[in-house]
Computed example of a mutant assay.
Amino acid sequence: MVDTMSELFFSGGLEVEDLVDWVEERWQEETRSRSKMESIGKLTLSIPVYLPLMTLSTEFELFEQLRPLQRKSYDNENRFLSPKPVIMLKPHSELLGKITSCNISVFLLDERGTPLCPQEQQYMSGPCGEETTITTPHLRTSSMSIRVSHRLAEIRASLCFIVDYETEDQTKSRCVITSNCFNFVRNRRRTKGAK
């Protein structure tokens, strides 16, 4: 099809506007196709049901654990989990200087370490739609601004970070990091009669 379009264009049988329209249509189709594939890929990865079967990381770590009491974010608020999580490569890791790419997905777990259902996962919003990357010069992520909606049921929760990385020899690996458990502070908004 591309050869046919280029032949028509160079033979004078196709206007520049027609070629531009054709390229735009192909680009839109490709964009829709990619976003479909990404969403399908995300659905298959999105909520790991069997976390115990996934390897706990020995190479990566959470820089600082979360505070045991957290604030939920109400509509039109930006209350983030604190301190903002940072995932880093351990200082003496065997992977130092060997990682070529690294992507991290974030999920909510209950206190038993079971992933929350897809509907409950939607109450969490994070960097780039719950994904972030490790920057190679610093071997750590930037601080992740993760917030949890007030609509999530009152539960004790923790965060799960799934780290997908590739090394120089093109080996792809996956490991898991979990945070400590935390509770949400109850709504303490004053009632109208309070002074």
Rank of each mutant, 00 (worst) to 15 (best):
F80D: 07
E131K: 09
P91K: 09
R26D: 10
R156I: 10
S82V: 11
T136N: 09
S143Y: 04
S101C: 11
P118F: 07
T100M: 12
I162H: 01
P127M: 08
Q70N: 09
S33D: 15
G12H: 01
E61I: 06
R186I: 01
E131D: 10
E154D: 13
L152Y: 03
L81G: 01
W22H: 08
M88R: 15
G97F: 03
R190S: 14
P68Q: 07
S11C: 03
S125K: 08
L109P: 00
E166R: 11
R156Y: 04
Q122F: 10
L14Q: 08
M1Q: 13
I104E: 01
S105L: 02
Q28L: 14
V16D: 15
L152S: 09
D21Y: 05
G129A: 12
S173N: 15
K36T: 14
S11P: 00
V23W: 05
I87A: 05
L108A: 05
G41R: 14
R34D: 14
M124N: 08
P68D: 06
S105K: 03
P118D: 12
V148I: 14
L43R: 13
L108S: 00
L95Y: 03
T132F: 02
P68H: 08
Q65N: 13
L8P: 00
L109R: 00
T44H: 09
H92D: 15
N78R: 09
L81C: 01
R79S: 05
N103G: 10
I47E: 10
C175I: 04
N183K: 06
S39P: 00
Q28S: 08
V23L: 13
T136G: 09
L53Q: 11
L43G: 14
S46L: 11
C175F: 05
F10Q: 01
E154C: 06
F80A: 02
G113C: 04
L95D: 12
R79P: 00
L109F: 00
E29S: 12
T114E: 13
P68C: 03
D169C: 11
D164R: 07
T135F: 07
F9R: 05
V176T: 11
F9M: 02
R112F: 06
D110E: 08
A157N: 01
L62I: 13
F60Y: 11
D169N: 15
L19Y: 13
G12N: 06
L108D: 01
